[in-house]
Amino acid sequence: MKHGKRPTRTQKKIIKKNGLNPENWLISKNLQHEQRLVVVHRHTGTMRECWT
């Protein structure tokens, strides 16, 4: 599994819009052509998708 990166300000807004706390999630993939983010939880390692 890849290591996550810290989210930018706009990515934090997207994460918050999807009902998640941006402080607990890292960016694994940024799929711009599909307008979605794949995020990984900092502590548990669970993965989720956030749609813009």
Rank of each mutant, 00 (worst) to 15 (best):
M1W: 14
M1Y: 14
M1A: 12
M1R: 10
K2N: 12
K2R: 14
G4Y: 00
K5N: 07
K5C: 01
K5M: 08
R6W: 06
P7A: 00
P7H: 06
P7C: 04
T8D: 03
T8L: 01
T8I: 04
T8Y: 01
T8S: 15
R9A: 13
T10Y: 08
T10E: 15
Q11K: 03
K13P: 00
K13R: 15
I14P: 03
I14E: 01
I14T: 02
I15V: 08
K16S: 09
K16M: 05
K17A: 15
K17Y: 00
N18P: 06
N18H: 14
N18R: 11
N18D: 14
N18L: 04
G19R: 06
L20F: 14
N21G: 01
N21V: 07
N21H: 12
E23M: 04
E23V: 06
N24T: 08
W25R: 00
W25S: 00
L26D: 05
L26H: 04
I27T: 02
I27Y: 04
S28C: 11
S28D: 13
L31G: 07
L31R: 13
L31K: 13
L31W: 10
L31T: 12
Q32T: 10
Q32G: 08
Q32W: 01
Q32P: 04
H33R: 14
H33M: 09
E34M: 11
E34H: 09
E34A: 12
Q35A: 12
R36Q: 06
R36T: 00
L37I: 06
L37S: 06
L37D: 01
V38N: 05
V38S: 10
V39G: 01
H41W: 04
R42L: 06
R42M: 06
R42A: 05
H43A: 11
H43I: 08
H43D: 15
T44N: 11
T44V: 09
T44D: 14
T44S: 13
T44P: 07
G45T: 09
G45S: 09
G45N: 09
T46W: 00
M47L: 12
M47S: 14
M47T: 15
R48G: 02
C50M: 05
C50Q: 02
C50V: 11
W51H: 15
T52D: 14
T52S: 11
